[in-house]
């Protein structure tokens, strides 16, 4: 697994993808930080995190699009799958590599918190809860992108597919609101990614949003492993 993480991480920076992701992430985060915190003269970073939710919807597919599709296209999966490595090790290795790059983006919010702390003491518990929420959300979205990347050999299709899936996820709340039957609406709302994320950005570290995101990540990584297994048996 270590070998996979190392290779994938270096591959992010031997191609423009890693740089583009970080640049765009920093750009938007910086913009939201300026608009919602500095401009407003507040020490509250919530605005940054709430806005980053939608930014992830189009940035995560960039991180995950080539993770598995490119291996299929270049047939390097033959080296990976015939090496003494479990499928779990392979999939989680790829997942962790993408997650580390993602976390390098999130780390910039720590800088914001430090900047704010020069003016007034921020509520560190809330800041940490926000960062935790963003990391968990990112992990769940990466696992979805990774899964979609395992379904195709074409990284553009993987990117557009993930983009569409994540966009759809971000609309779940509006869809739930539009359903008139109340119990159906509640069920659909249960799939909302925004709801648990919002809970965390308010500084309420509860078990249920944390478990929600971790379950989503585990579920989709498991499905990715199944895709590999199914291909072997087909």
């Amino acid at each position: 697994m270590g070998a996979i993480i190392k290779r994938e991480m270096s591959s992010y920076f031997s191609s423009p993808i890693g740089y583009i992701y970080l640049a765009v992430f920093y750009l938007f985060a910086g913009f939201f930080f300026y608009m919602t915190t500095l401009q407003a003269g507040s020490t509250d970073l919530r605005g940054v995190f709430i806005n980053l939710f939608s930014v992830l919807m189009f940035l995560i597919p960039i991180l995950t699009m080539r993770l598995i599709s490119e291996d299929k296209r270049q047939k390097t999966d033959q080296a990976l799958l015939t090496a003494p490595l479990t499928l779990g090790g392979l999939v989680f290795g790829k997942f962790i590599a993408a997650f580390i790059i993602f976390a390098m983006g999130v780390a910039v919010t720590l800088v914001f918190a430090v900047v704010v702390s020069f003016f007034a003491q921020p509520d560190w518990a809330v800041v940490l809860s926000n960062m935790l929420g963003l990391l968990l959300l990112g992990g769940a979205l990466i696992s979805i992108g990774l899964f979609i990347s395992s379904l195709t050999e074409n990284q553009v299709i993987a990117a557009i597919g993930s983009f569409a899936a994540l966009m759809f996820l971000s609309f779940i709340d509006s869809i739930a609101a539009a359903i008139p039957i109340s119990f159906l609406s509640t069920i659909v709302k249960g799939f909302s990614f925004y709801e648990p994320y919002n809970t965390l950005t308010m500084g309420k570290i509860g078990l249920s949003p944390i478990l929600f995101f971790i379950s989503v990540a585990l579920l989709f990584n498991y499905l990715t492993i199944r895709v590999f297994e199914r291909r072997r048996w087909s």
Partner: peptide, 14 residues
């Protein structure tokens, strides 16, 4: 096992 598939599994960008 050491395996050389029909199409060598090379990461072209490395």
């Amino acid at each position: 096992i050491g395996y050389l598939p029909e199409h060598p599994p090379l990461y072209l960008d490395m």
